[in-house]
Design a protein around this nucleic acid. Sequence first.
DNA 1: GCGAAAATTGACCATTTGGTCAAATTCCTG
DNA 2: CAGGAATTTGACCAAATGGTCAATTTTCGC
Lengths: 220, 220
Amino acid sequence: MSKTSAQRMEDRPAGVKRRDAEARILTAAEEVFAEAGYSGATTAAIADRAGLPKANLHYYFRTKEALYRRLIERILEEWLASGDQIRPEADPAEAFSTYIAAKIEASRRRPFASKVFANEILHGAPHSGDFLKIQVRAWVEAKGKVIDGWVKRGLIRPIEPHHLFFILWAATQTYADFETQIRAVLARKRIRPADYEEAARLITRMVLGACGVDRKVRKS
Amino acid sequence: MSKTSAQRMEDRPAGVKRRDAEARILTAAEEVFAEAGYSGATTAAIADRAGLPKANLHYYFRTKEALYRRLIERILEEWLASGDQIRPEADPAEAFSTYIAAKIEASRRRPFASKVFANEILHGAPHSGDFLKIQVRAWVEAKGKVIDGWVKRGLIRPIEPHHLFFILWAATQTYADFETQIRAVLARKRIRPADYEEAARLITRMVLGACGVDRKVRKS
DNA sequence: GCGAAAATTGACCATTTGGTCAAATTCCTG
DNA sequence: CAGGAATTTGACCAAATGGTCAATTTTCGC
Protein backbone atom coordinates (compact mmCIF):
# COMPACT_ATOMS: atom_id res chain seq x y z
CA MET A 1 0.00 0.00 0.00
CA SER A 2 2.90 2.29 0.52
CA LYS A 3 3.68 1.61 -3.09
CA THR A 4 0.27 2.76 -4.15
CA SER A 5 0.52 6.02 -2.33
CA ALA A 6 4.00 6.52 -3.67
CA GLN A 7 2.65 6.04 -7.16
CA ARG A 8 0.02 8.66 -6.56
CA MET A 9 2.57 10.99 -5.20
CA GLU A 10 4.41 11.16 -8.48
CA ASP A 11 1.30 11.77 -10.52
CA ARG A 12 0.15 15.31 -10.87
CA PRO A 13 -3.67 15.08 -10.99
CA ALA A 14 -3.94 15.55 -7.26
CA GLY A 15 -6.67 16.51 -4.89
CA VAL A 16 -7.28 20.09 -3.98
CA LYS A 17 -5.85 19.53 -0.54
CA ARG A 18 -2.62 18.26 -1.96
CA ARG A 19 -2.38 21.16 -4.39
CA ASP A 20 -2.93 23.53 -1.55
CA ALA A 21 -0.37 21.98 0.76
CA GLU A 22 2.20 21.78 -2.00
CA ALA A 23 1.68 25.43 -2.83
CA ARG A 24 2.16 26.46 0.78
CA ILE A 25 5.29 24.36 1.05
CA LEU A 26 6.72 25.70 -2.18
CA THR A 27 6.18 29.27 -1.06
CA ALA A 28 7.88 28.58 2.25
CA ALA A 29 10.68 26.74 0.49
CA GLU A 30 11.28 29.67 -1.83
CA GLU A 31 11.91 31.93 1.13
CA VAL A 32 14.07 29.52 3.05
CA PHE A 33 16.18 28.43 0.10
CA ALA A 34 16.63 32.08 -0.87
CA GLU A 35 17.83 33.02 2.57
CA ALA A 36 20.01 30.05 3.35
CA GLY A 37 20.97 28.40 0.07
CA TYR A 38 20.43 24.76 -0.69
CA SER A 39 22.55 23.24 2.06
CA GLY A 40 21.69 25.85 4.61
CA ALA A 41 17.98 25.34 4.18
CA THR A 42 16.53 22.67 6.45
CA THR A 43 13.36 20.82 5.82
CA ALA A 44 12.42 21.59 9.40
CA ALA A 45 12.69 25.32 8.75
CA ILE A 46 10.64 25.02 5.59
CA ALA A 47 7.99 22.99 7.36
CA ASP A 48 7.89 25.51 10.18
CA ARG A 49 7.39 28.39 7.81
CA ALA A 50 4.72 26.47 5.98
CA GLY A 51 3.03 25.75 9.28
CA LEU A 52 3.15 21.95 9.30
CA PRO A 53 5.26 19.20 10.88
CA LYS A 54 8.38 18.09 9.11
CA ALA A 55 7.05 14.59 8.59
CA ASN A 56 4.11 16.06 6.76
CA LEU A 57 6.34 17.99 4.44
CA HIS A 58 8.14 14.76 3.64
CA TYR A 59 4.82 13.21 2.86
CA TYR A 60 4.26 15.69 0.06
CA PHE A 61 7.84 15.94 -1.09
CA ARG A 62 9.81 12.81 -0.46
CA THR A 63 13.17 14.50 -0.36
CA LYS A 64 14.58 17.96 0.02
CA GLU A 65 16.08 17.48 -3.41
CA ALA A 66 12.69 16.75 -4.98
CA LEU A 67 11.15 19.78 -3.34
CA TYR A 68 13.98 21.96 -4.51
CA ARG A 69 13.76 20.63 -8.04
CA ARG A 70 10.07 21.39 -8.27
CA LEU A 71 10.78 24.87 -7.04
CA ILE A 72 13.46 25.45 -9.64
CA GLU A 73 11.15 24.20 -12.37
CA ARG A 74 8.44 26.60 -11.31
CA ILE A 75 10.82 29.53 -11.22
CA LEU A 76 12.38 28.68 -14.55
CA GLU A 77 8.98 28.56 -16.16
CA GLU A 78 8.20 32.11 -15.20
CA TRP A 79 11.70 33.19 -16.08
CA LEU A 80 11.35 31.83 -19.60
CA ALA A 81 7.91 33.33 -20.08
CA SER A 82 9.07 36.85 -19.25
CA GLY A 83 10.44 37.46 -22.72
CA ASP A 84 7.28 36.99 -24.68
CA GLN A 85 7.41 40.57 -25.89
CA ILE A 86 10.56 39.93 -27.86
CA ARG A 87 9.03 38.91 -31.19
CA PRO A 88 10.16 39.67 -34.75
CA GLU A 89 7.21 41.90 -35.53
CA ALA A 90 7.54 43.93 -32.34
CA ASP A 91 9.06 47.36 -32.21
CA PRO A 92 12.57 46.87 -30.76
CA ALA A 93 12.51 49.87 -28.45
CA GLU A 94 9.07 48.91 -27.22
CA ALA A 95 10.05 45.30 -26.77
CA PHE A 96 13.21 46.07 -24.80
CA SER A 97 11.44 48.61 -22.62
CA THR A 98 8.72 46.14 -21.82
CA TYR A 99 11.13 43.31 -21.17
CA ILE A 100 13.26 45.40 -18.85
CA ALA A 101 10.20 46.66 -17.02
CA ALA A 102 8.96 43.10 -16.62
CA LYS A 103 12.28 41.88 -15.30
CA ILE A 104 12.55 44.71 -12.82
CA GLU A 105 9.00 44.10 -11.76
CA ALA A 106 9.81 40.43 -11.23
CA SER A 107 12.75 41.43 -9.05
CA ARG A 108 10.45 43.60 -7.02
CA ARG A 109 7.60 41.19 -6.71
CA ARG A 110 9.33 37.89 -6.25
CA PRO A 111 12.84 38.52 -5.01
CA PHE A 112 13.03 35.11 -3.37
CA ALA A 113 12.46 33.33 -6.63
CA SER A 114 15.20 35.33 -8.26
CA LYS A 115 17.55 34.57 -5.40
CA VAL A 116 16.93 30.86 -5.53
CA PHE A 117 17.56 30.89 -9.24
CA ALA A 118 20.71 32.95 -8.82
CA ASN A 119 21.97 30.69 -6.08
CA GLU A 120 21.47 27.63 -8.21
CA ILE A 121 23.41 29.04 -11.14
CA LEU A 122 26.04 30.58 -8.91
CA HIS A 123 27.01 27.13 -7.70
CA GLY A 124 26.97 25.52 -11.10
CA ALA A 125 23.37 24.31 -11.20
CA PRO A 126 24.24 21.05 -9.45
CA HIS A 127 20.64 20.15 -8.74
CA SER A 128 19.14 20.95 -12.11
CA GLY A 129 20.66 18.24 -14.21
CA ASP A 130 21.06 19.88 -17.59
CA PHE A 131 17.49 20.94 -18.13
CA LEU A 132 18.05 24.44 -16.80
CA LYS A 133 21.03 25.09 -19.01
CA ILE A 134 19.37 23.56 -22.03
CA GLN A 135 16.20 25.57 -21.72
CA VAL A 136 17.95 28.84 -21.08
CA ARG A 137 20.19 28.22 -24.06
CA ALA A 138 17.23 27.46 -26.30
CA TRP A 139 15.50 30.60 -25.11
CA VAL A 140 18.49 32.75 -25.93
CA GLU A 141 18.93 31.16 -29.33
CA ALA A 142 15.34 31.95 -30.20
CA LYS A 143 15.45 35.51 -28.91
CA GLY A 144 18.86 36.04 -30.41
CA LYS A 145 17.47 35.27 -33.84
CA VAL A 146 14.80 37.90 -33.33
CA ILE A 147 17.40 40.50 -32.46
CA ASP A 148 19.59 39.53 -35.37
CA GLY A 149 16.53 40.01 -37.53
CA TRP A 150 16.06 43.53 -36.20
CA VAL A 151 19.66 44.26 -36.98
CA LYS A 152 19.36 42.92 -40.52
CA ARG A 153 16.30 45.06 -41.11
CA GLY A 154 18.22 48.07 -39.90
CA LEU A 155 15.93 48.67 -36.95
CA ILE A 156 18.79 48.64 -34.46
CA ARG A 157 22.53 48.91 -34.57
CA PRO A 158 24.51 45.67 -34.77
CA ILE A 159 24.77 44.17 -31.33
CA GLU A 160 25.77 40.84 -29.90
CA PRO A 161 22.53 39.31 -28.56
CA HIS A 162 24.15 36.89 -26.12
CA HIS A 163 26.07 39.50 -24.24
CA LEU A 164 23.17 41.89 -24.43
CA PHE A 165 21.05 39.38 -22.56
CA PHE A 166 23.75 38.58 -20.02
CA ILE A 167 24.01 42.24 -19.16
CA LEU A 168 20.29 42.74 -19.20
CA TRP A 169 19.62 39.84 -16.86
CA ALA A 170 22.39 40.91 -14.56
CA ALA A 171 21.26 44.51 -14.42
CA THR A 172 17.64 43.71 -13.71
CA GLN A 173 18.05 40.73 -11.42
CA THR A 174 20.63 42.46 -9.31
CA TYR A 175 17.79 44.43 -7.75
CA ALA A 176 16.50 41.18 -6.29
CA ASP A 177 19.64 39.14 -5.83
CA PHE A 178 21.83 41.81 -4.30
CA GLU A 179 19.02 43.70 -2.67
CA THR A 180 20.96 43.66 0.59
CA GLN A 181 23.77 45.61 -0.96
CA ILE A 182 21.43 47.97 -2.73
CA ARG A 183 19.54 48.72 0.44
CA ALA A 184 22.79 49.37 2.23
CA VAL A 185 24.06 51.76 -0.42
CA LEU A 186 20.79 53.60 -0.75
CA ALA A 187 20.45 53.63 3.05
CA ARG A 188 16.94 52.30 2.88
CA LYS A 189 15.03 49.79 4.90
CA ARG A 190 13.33 48.72 1.73
CA ILE A 191 13.92 49.51 -1.90
CA ARG A 192 11.19 51.91 -2.97
CA PRO A 193 9.02 51.82 -6.05
CA ALA A 194 10.76 54.97 -7.23
CA ASP A 195 14.09 53.16 -7.04
CA TYR A 196 12.87 50.35 -9.23
CA GLU A 197 11.54 52.87 -11.70
CA GLU A 198 14.81 54.73 -11.71
CA ALA A 199 16.61 51.47 -12.33
CA ALA A 200 14.35 50.48 -15.19
CA ARG A 201 14.73 53.89 -16.73
CA LEU A 202 18.51 53.82 -16.58
CA ILE A 203 18.82 50.27 -17.86
CA THR A 204 16.44 51.07 -20.68
CA ARG A 205 18.39 54.17 -21.52
CA MET A 206 21.59 52.15 -21.66
CA VAL A 207 20.19 49.36 -23.76
CA LEU A 208 18.35 51.58 -26.22
CA GLY A 209 21.41 53.76 -26.46
CA ALA A 210 23.59 50.77 -27.25
CA CYS A 211 21.07 49.71 -29.88
CA GLY A 212 21.07 53.14 -31.41
CA VAL A 213 17.39 53.55 -30.68
CA ASP A 214 17.40 56.67 -28.59
CA ARG A 215 13.73 57.05 -28.39
CA LYS A 216 12.58 59.00 -25.40
CA VAL A 217 11.16 56.57 -22.88
CA ARG A 218 7.52 57.23 -22.33
CA LYS A 219 6.22 57.59 -18.82
CA SER A 220 4.85 54.27 -17.73
CA MET B 1 49.31 26.99 27.48
CA SER B 2 46.47 26.65 25.15
CA LYS B 3 45.74 30.25 26.02
CA THR B 4 49.19 31.29 24.88
CA SER B 5 48.84 29.66 21.52
CA ALA B 6 45.37 31.05 21.22
CA GLN B 7 46.71 34.49 21.87
CA ARG B 8 49.29 34.05 19.18
CA MET B 9 46.73 32.78 16.82
CA GLU B 10 44.82 36.04 16.88
CA ASP B 11 47.89 38.18 16.37
CA ARG B 12 48.99 38.82 12.87
CA PRO B 13 52.81 38.99 13.05
CA ALA B 14 53.14 35.29 12.39
CA GLY B 15 55.87 33.04 11.21
CA VAL B 16 56.40 32.37 7.56
CA LYS B 17 55.09 28.86 7.96
CA ARG B 18 51.84 30.13 9.37
CA ARG B 19 51.51 32.72 6.62
CA ASP B 20 52.06 30.04 4.08
CA ALA B 21 49.58 27.60 5.54
CA GLU B 22 46.94 30.29 5.94
CA ALA B 23 47.37 31.33 2.33
CA ARG B 24 46.96 27.77 1.11
CA ILE B 25 43.87 27.31 3.26
CA LEU B 26 42.33 30.59 2.13
CA THR B 27 42.82 29.69 -1.50
CA ALA B 28 41.22 26.31 -0.97
CA ALA B 29 38.42 27.89 1.02
CA GLU B 30 37.70 30.35 -1.75
CA GLU B 31 37.09 27.50 -4.15
CA VAL B 32 35.02 25.39 -1.82
CA PHE B 33 32.87 28.24 -0.52
CA ALA B 34 32.32 29.40 -4.09
CA GLU B 35 31.17 26.00 -5.19
CA ALA B 36 29.07 25.01 -2.22
CA GLY B 37 28.09 28.16 -0.39
CA TYR B 38 28.70 28.73 3.29
CA SER B 39 26.67 25.85 4.68
CA GLY B 40 27.54 23.46 1.91
CA ALA B 41 31.23 23.94 2.35
CA THR B 42 32.78 21.57 4.87
CA THR B 43 36.00 22.18 6.70
CA ALA B 44 36.99 18.67 5.69
CA ALA B 45 36.62 19.53 2.00
CA ILE B 46 38.60 22.71 2.43
CA ALA B 47 41.34 20.88 4.31
CA ASP B 48 41.43 18.22 1.61
CA ARG B 49 41.82 20.76 -1.13
CA ALA B 50 44.50 22.54 0.83
CA GLY B 51 46.27 19.24 1.34
CA LEU B 52 46.22 18.97 5.10
CA PRO B 53 44.21 17.20 7.80
CA LYS B 54 41.09 18.84 9.07
CA ALA B 55 42.49 19.18 12.57
CA ASN B 56 45.36 21.14 11.17
CA LEU B 57 43.04 23.54 9.43
CA HIS B 58 41.27 24.10 12.72
CA TYR B 59 44.62 24.85 14.28
CA TYR B 60 45.08 27.80 11.93
CA PHE B 61 41.47 28.90 11.84
CA ARG B 62 39.60 28.08 14.98
CA THR B 63 36.19 27.99 13.36
CA LYS B 64 34.70 27.79 9.91
CA GLU B 65 33.15 31.14 10.63
CA ALA B 66 36.52 32.75 11.36
CA LEU B 67 38.01 31.31 8.20
CA TYR B 68 35.11 32.54 6.17
CA ARG B 69 35.29 35.98 7.69
CA ARG B 70 38.94 36.34 6.86
CA LEU B 71 38.19 35.29 3.33
CA ILE B 72 35.44 37.86 2.95
CA GLU B 73 37.71 40.57 4.30
CA ARG B 74 40.38 39.70 1.79
CA ILE B 75 37.94 39.74 -1.10
CA LEU B 76 36.31 42.98 -0.02
CA GLU B 77 39.69 44.66 0.11
CA GLU B 78 40.40 43.90 -3.51
CA TRP B 79 36.86 44.77 -4.47
CA LEU B 80 37.16 48.22 -2.91
CA ALA B 81 40.53 48.85 -4.47
CA SER B 82 39.33 48.19 -7.98
CA GLY B 83 37.84 51.65 -8.41
CA ASP B 84 41.00 53.66 -7.89
CA GLN B 85 40.76 55.05 -11.41
CA ILE B 86 37.60 56.92 -10.58
CA ARG B 87 39.05 60.21 -9.42
CA PRO B 88 37.84 63.78 -9.94
CA GLU B 89 40.70 64.76 -12.20
CA ALA B 90 40.41 61.69 -14.40
CA ASP B 91 38.80 61.70 -17.80
CA PRO B 92 35.34 60.15 -17.32
CA ALA B 93 35.39 58.01 -20.43
CA GLU B 94 38.86 56.80 -19.64
CA ALA B 95 37.98 56.13 -16.01
CA PHE B 96 34.85 54.14 -16.84
CA SER B 97 36.60 52.13 -19.53
CA THR B 98 39.39 51.27 -17.17
CA TYR B 99 37.07 50.41 -14.31
CA ILE B 100 34.96 48.16 -16.48
CA ALA B 101 38.01 46.46 -17.90
CA ALA B 102 39.34 45.91 -14.40
CA LYS B 103 36.07 44.46 -13.16
CA ILE B 104 35.79 42.11 -16.13
CA GLU B 105 39.40 41.10 -15.66
CA ALA B 106 38.67 40.35 -12.02
CA SER B 107 35.76 38.16 -13.07
CA ARG B 108 38.07 36.30 -15.39
CA ARG B 109 40.98 35.92 -13.07
CA ARG B 110 39.35 35.26 -9.75
CA PRO B 111 35.85 33.98 -10.38
CA PHE B 112 35.78 32.14 -7.06
CA ALA B 113 36.31 35.32 -5.10
CA SER B 114 33.49 36.98 -6.95
CA LYS B 115 31.22 34.03 -6.30
CA VAL B 116 31.92 33.96 -2.60
CA PHE B 117 31.20 37.65 -2.41
CA ALA B 118 28.04 37.28 -4.43
CA ASN B 119 26.87 34.40 -2.30
CA GLU B 120 27.39 36.36 0.87
CA ILE B 121 25.36 39.31 -0.33
CA LEU B 122 22.75 37.10 -1.93
CA HIS B 123 21.89 35.68 1.46
CA GLY B 124 21.89 38.99 3.25
CA ALA B 125 25.51 39.11 4.39
CA PRO B 126 24.75 37.16 7.57
CA HIS B 127 28.40 36.49 8.34
CA SER B 128 29.80 39.93 7.71
CA GLY B 129 28.30 41.85 10.56
CA ASP B 130 27.78 45.29 9.12
CA PHE B 131 31.30 46.00 8.01
CA LEU B 132 30.68 44.85 4.47
CA LYS B 133 27.65 47.03 4.00
CA ILE B 134 29.26 50.01 5.66
CA GLN B 135 32.41 49.88 3.58
CA VAL B 136 30.59 49.38 0.31
CA ARG B 137 28.31 52.26 1.13
CA ALA B 138 31.23 54.53 1.95
CA TRP B 139 32.92 53.55 -1.30
CA VAL B 140 29.85 54.43 -3.32
CA GLU B 141 29.36 57.72 -1.55
CA ALA B 142 32.92 58.70 -2.38
CA LYS B 143 32.75 57.62 -5.98
CA GLY B 144 29.29 59.06 -6.36
CA LYS B 145 30.64 62.48 -5.45
CA VAL B 146 33.25 62.15 -8.17
CA ILE B 147 30.63 61.37 -10.74
CA ASP B 148 28.38 64.17 -9.56
CA GLY B 149 31.38 66.44 -10.01
CA TRP B 150 31.80 65.31 -13.58
CA VAL B 151 28.17 66.04 -14.19
CA LYS B 152 28.43 69.51 -12.67
CA ARG B 153 31.42 70.28 -14.83
CA GLY B 154 29.46 69.20 -17.87
CA LEU B 155 31.80 66.35 -18.68
CA ILE B 156 29.00 63.79 -18.72
CA ARG B 157 25.25 63.84 -18.92
CA PRO B 158 23.34 63.79 -15.62
CA ILE B 159 23.20 60.27 -14.29
CA GLU B 160 22.29 58.64 -11.02
CA PRO B 161 25.59 57.27 -9.65
CA HIS B 162 24.09 54.67 -7.31
CA HIS B 163 22.16 52.90 -9.99
CA LEU B 164 24.99 53.29 -12.44
CA PHE B 165 27.20 51.34 -10.08
CA PHE B 166 24.59 48.71 -9.36
CA ILE B 167 24.28 48.04 -13.06
CA LEU B 168 27.97 48.21 -13.64
CA TRP B 169 28.75 45.72 -10.90
CA ALA B 170 26.02 43.41 -12.01
CA ALA B 171 27.06 43.49 -15.64
CA THR B 172 30.72 42.81 -14.96
CA GLN B 173 30.44 40.36 -12.10
CA THR B 174 27.85 38.29 -13.89
CA TYR B 175 30.69 36.91 -16.00
CA ALA B 176 32.08 35.31 -12.87
CA ASP B 177 29.01 34.66 -10.78
CA PHE B 178 26.81 33.22 -13.50
CA GLU B 179 29.60 31.77 -15.52
CA THR B 180 27.72 28.46 -15.62
CA GLN B 181 24.83 30.05 -17.44
CA ILE B 182 27.08 32.01 -19.74
CA ARG B 183 29.02 28.93 -20.70
CA ALA B 184 25.80 27.09 -21.37
CA VAL B 185 24.40 29.83 -23.59
CA LEU B 186 27.63 30.36 -25.48
CA ALA B 187 28.04 26.59 -25.74
CA ARG B 188 31.57 26.76 -24.47
CA LYS B 189 33.60 24.63 -22.11
CA ARG B 190 35.24 27.79 -20.91
CA ILE B 191 34.56 31.45 -21.49
CA ARG B 192 37.20 32.71 -23.89
CA PRO B 193 39.31 35.84 -23.67
CA ALA B 194 37.46 37.14 -26.72
CA ASP B 195 34.18 36.76 -24.85
CA TYR B 196 35.41 38.82 -21.94
CA GLU B 197 36.63 41.46 -24.36
CA GLU B 198 33.31 41.51 -26.14
CA ALA B 199 31.57 41.90 -22.81
CA ALA B 200 33.80 44.74 -21.70
CA ARG B 201 33.30 46.46 -25.03
CA LEU B 202 29.53 46.22 -24.88
CA ILE B 203 29.28 47.30 -21.26
CA THR B 204 31.57 50.20 -21.95
CA ARG B 205 29.53 51.17 -24.96
CA MET B 206 26.37 51.12 -22.88
CA VAL B 207 27.80 53.11 -20.00
CA LEU B 208 29.53 55.73 -22.11
CA GLY B 209 26.42 56.02 -24.21
CA ALA B 210 24.30 56.61 -21.13
CA CYS B 211 26.79 59.22 -19.99
CA GLY B 212 26.69 60.92 -23.36
CA VAL B 213 30.39 60.32 -23.87
CA ASP B 214 30.37 58.40 -27.09
CA ARG B 215 34.06 58.26 -27.52
CA LYS B 216 35.21 55.42 -29.68
CA VAL B 217 36.69 52.77 -27.46
CA ARG B 218 40.35 52.33 -28.21
CA LYS B 219 41.77 48.91 -28.79
CA SER B 220 43.25 47.73 -25.54
C1' DG C 1 -22.55 5.80 7.24
C1' DC C 2 -18.89 2.57 5.61
C1' DG C 3 -14.60 1.44 4.02
C1' DA C 4 -10.63 2.60 1.73
C1' DA C 5 -7.48 6.05 0.48
C1' DA C 6 -5.28 10.23 1.92
C1' DA C 7 -3.25 12.94 5.30
C1' DT C 8 -1.18 13.89 9.90
C1' DT C 9 2.29 13.49 13.32
C1' DG C 10 5.44 12.19 17.23
C1' DA C 11 9.17 9.29 17.87
C1' DC C 12 13.08 7.59 16.12
C1' DC C 13 17.53 6.64 13.43
C1' DA C 14 21.82 6.96 10.68
C1' DT C 15 24.87 10.11 8.81
C1' DT C 16 27.29 14.24 8.48
C1' DT C 17 29.97 17.69 10.36
C1' DG C 18 32.12 21.40 13.18
C1' DG C 19 35.05 21.28 16.59
C1' DT C 20 38.20 19.22 20.54
C1' DC C 21 42.13 16.94 22.56
C1' DA C 22 46.14 14.79 23.80
C1' DA C 23 50.04 12.77 22.14
C1' DA C 24 53.72 13.11 19.00
C1' DT C 25 56.81 15.64 16.05
C1' DT C 26 59.18 19.56 14.16
C1' DC C 27 61.10 24.03 14.56
C1' DC C 28 63.58 27.73 16.41
C1' DT C 29 66.23 30.36 19.67
C1' DG C 30 69.59 31.20 23.10
C1' DC D 1 72.17 21.11 21.68
C1' DA D 2 68.62 21.87 25.19
C1' DG D 3 64.15 23.16 25.89
C1' DG D 4 60.15 25.52 24.99
C1' DA D 5 57.05 26.95 21.37
C1' DA D 6 54.78 25.84 17.21
C1' DT D 7 52.83 22.40 14.37
C1' DT D 8 50.79 18.02 13.03
C1' DT D 9 47.38 14.49 13.28
C1' DG D 10 44.30 10.47 14.40
C1' DA D 11 40.66 9.58 17.35
C1' DC D 12 36.77 11.16 19.20
C1' DC D 13 32.25 13.68 20.44
C1' DA D 14 27.90 16.23 20.49
C1' DA D 15 24.66 18.51 17.74
C1' DA D 16 22.14 19.00 13.62
C1' DT D 17 19.61 17.11 9.99
C1' DG D 18 17.40 14.34 6.18
C1' DG D 19 14.54 10.88 6.13
C1' DT D 20 11.52 6.78 8.00
C1' DC D 21 7.66 4.53 10.20
C1' DA D 22 3.77 3.04 12.41
C1' DA D 23 -0.16 4.54 14.54
C1' DT D 24 -3.92 7.67 14.28
C1' DT D 25 -7.19 10.78 12.24
C1' DT D 26 -9.50 12.89 8.39
C1' DT D 27 -11.60 12.84 3.88
C1' DC D 28 -14.46 11.23 0.38
C1' DG D 29 -16.83 8.35 -3.08
C1' DC D 30 -20.47 5.05 -3.01
